[in-house]
Nucleic acid binder design. Structure first.
Lengths: 250, 250
DNA sequence: CGCAGTATTGAAATTTCTCAAGCCGAGTGG
DNA sequence: CCACTCGGCTTGAGAAATTTCAATACTGCG
C-alpha cells in the first residue's frame, strides 16, 4: 500500500504546471505564456529527509515541486530544528534565493519527492522582459509571507488544540487548491515529533491534541494522510479564516 | 524630555528616502531613479495607537514610513492581539497590498508617526516600465518574509531569555542600518505587555527576562529606548546571526 | 518472529501563567 | 507644593499548563 500518497499524483509536465501556477497569480498575455513554456528545467528525485539546499548555501537555481512534500526549516545552535513551512506540487519554496543570495534556512524532502530546478539566470532574464511574469512570482512569495505571518500567530497565540487544528486546516485547504486532495483527505507525511517541531509543541503534547481532534470527530492523521472528518468542526476549533491564503483572484 | 526618540529624527524628503531604499536593493539606472523621484505621495501624521489599515481592508495605496514606529498585527477571535513586525523610517510595511488585495492583518502606529501614502496605481505602472525598481521592492518583501521566518523560530524554539534578547538584537541592528541608532541605543517604544504580545510571553515573563538581561549587563529598555550595554553578550544570549536580515549587497 | 520507528500512557519535574498587591515616576489640579 | 491619579513596572505565590522521562503498545516490514 502506498503510505503517503506519493505516486498517486499523476505525472505532470513541468511547463504546464508552471504555466497554470503563473496564471493563478497574474493575467498573462500570449508572449508571457510562451516565455514561461520556454523555461528550461532539470528534474531531480529526492530521497526521504534529503536536503535540497542548506542554510548558508548560495543556490543558482530555484526549486519547483512536482511531487511529494518539501519542508523549509531553521537549524538552531543546539541542533534543534524548527519547521517553517511545507510545500507541495506547484510550489516554489526557494524562489526568494533569486534575490537573497544566502539561504537563511534549509529545504529538505519530507517524503520521497520530485522537483525541477529552474536556473536563476534564466528566470532573471525572463523577469526583465516579461514584468507580468515577475508579478505572478512576486505574488507567490507574498502569499508565502502571509502564511509565515499566520504561523507566528498560530505558534504564539493559539492553544495547542487550536494550533494543531489550524495547521491541519491550512494543509488541507492548500492541498485541495492544488488538486491534491482526495475527498476529505490529503497527504501529510509528518510524524508527531515533526508536528511538534512545526507547532512549538512537544511530541507528547501533539499526541494529546491529536487525540482530542480525533475524539471530537474533527480530523485524524494516520499513515501520513490527513483525514478531515468534519470540516466545520475543525475550522471552528482552529478559528480558521482562509483569507490569508489569498486564493481569490489577484 | 522626548520620551521615545520621535522628533530626534531629522525631516527627510520622501523621494530621497525612497531612492536610497531602492538603491540598497537593486542597481538602478538613471531612468529608474527619475521614475522613483516622480512617485507622488501624500504625507500623513498618525497618533499613538491609530490604525492605518485594518484586517479586511482593501487599500489603494501603500505606506512608506517617515518617522516613528508602525506595527503589523493580527487580531484573534477572542480579541487577543499578536504583533508580527515593527517598521521604522524607510520601511514599506504593506507593499504586499499591491498584489494581495485583502489585508490579512492590521497596521497601526506604535508611537506618533508620520507616513507617506504611495498609490498602488502609480506604483503598478512604474513596475511595468521599470522592472528593476520592481525587483528592488520585491526584495524588500523577501527580507520581510525572512524576518517573519525568524519570528516563527524565535517564538517557537528559543527560551524566553533568548527570545527577548534576539528581538532586541534585531530591532537594534535594523535601526542602526536605517541610521536611527544613537550610539548603542535606539527608539523602541513598546511596553512589556506589547513585548509579550510580540514574543508569545506574558507581561510578567517579559519583565523577568528583561531583568535577567539587565543583570547580565547585556541590554535594557527604558522610556521607550533600547540600550545595548554589551553587544557580544546580547548576541550570545540570543544566538543572533544577522544573515537573515540580508543586509549584504543584493 | 522480531526489529525499527512511531504512538500512547502515566507520573514527576519544570516552566509559565495568572492573580493581586505594591511600587514608582510623571503629570494634574487643588 | 503636595496629594492624587494613571500607566507601567516589580514582586510573590498559587494554579495551570507543558515538558520530560520512561515504560509499554502497536504496525509494517524484513
Amino acid at each position: 500500500m502506498v503510505r503517503n500518497g506519493a505516486g498517486l499524483e499523476e505525472q505532470v509536465n513541468v511547463a504546464d504546471l508552471l504555466l497554470a501556477k503563473a496564471r493563478q497569480h497574474a493575467t498573462l498575455v500570449e508572449a508571457d505564456e510562451r516565455a514561461i513554456r520556454a523555461i528550461p528545467s532539470r528534474k531531480k528525485v529526492l530521497t526521504v529527509g534529503a536536503d535540497v539546499v542548506r542554510q548558508g548555501d548560495k543556490p543558482d537555481s530555484a526549486i519547483f515541486v512536482l511531487r511529494g512534500v518539501l519542508a523549509r526549516y531553521h537549524t538552531l545552535a543546539g541542533g534543534d530544528r524548527q519547521y517553517l513551512s511545507f510545500h507541495i506540487r506547484g510550489d516554489l519554496p526557494d524562489i526568494q534565493s533569486m534575490f537573497l543570495s544566502i539561504m537563511d534556512h534549509s529545504v529538505s524532502a519530507v517524503n520521497e519527492a520530485e522537483i525541477a530546478a529552474l536556473s536563476h539566470q534564466h528566470l532573471c532574464n525572463l523577469f526583465l522582459h516579461r514584468p507580468t511574469v515577475m508579478i505572478a512570482l512576486w505574488r507567490l512569495t507574498l502569499i508565502d509571507a502571509a502564511i509565515f505571518r499566520q504561523s507566528i500567530t498560530n505558534n504564539s497565540a493559539r492553544s495547542h488544540l487550536a494550533r494543531l487544528a489550524h495547521f491541519f486546516c491550512e494543509q488541507f485547504y492548500r492541498a485541495r487548491e492544488a488538486g491534491l486532495a482526495e475527498g476529505a483527505s490529503c497527504a501529510l507525511p509528518l510524524n508527531q515529533l515533526q508536528l511538534g517541531q512545526t507547532l512549538a509543541m512537544s511530541q507528547v503534547s501533539v499526541n494529546r491534541a491529536m487525540q482530542k481532534l480525533r475524539r471530537a470527530q474533527a480530523a485524524d492523521l494516520r499513515f501520513g494522510r490527513l483525514e478531515v472528518r468534519n470540516w466545520p468542526s475543525l475550522t471552528g476549533i482552529a478559528g480558521f479564516d482562509p483569507t490569508y491564503l489569498h486564493l481569490d483572484a489577484p
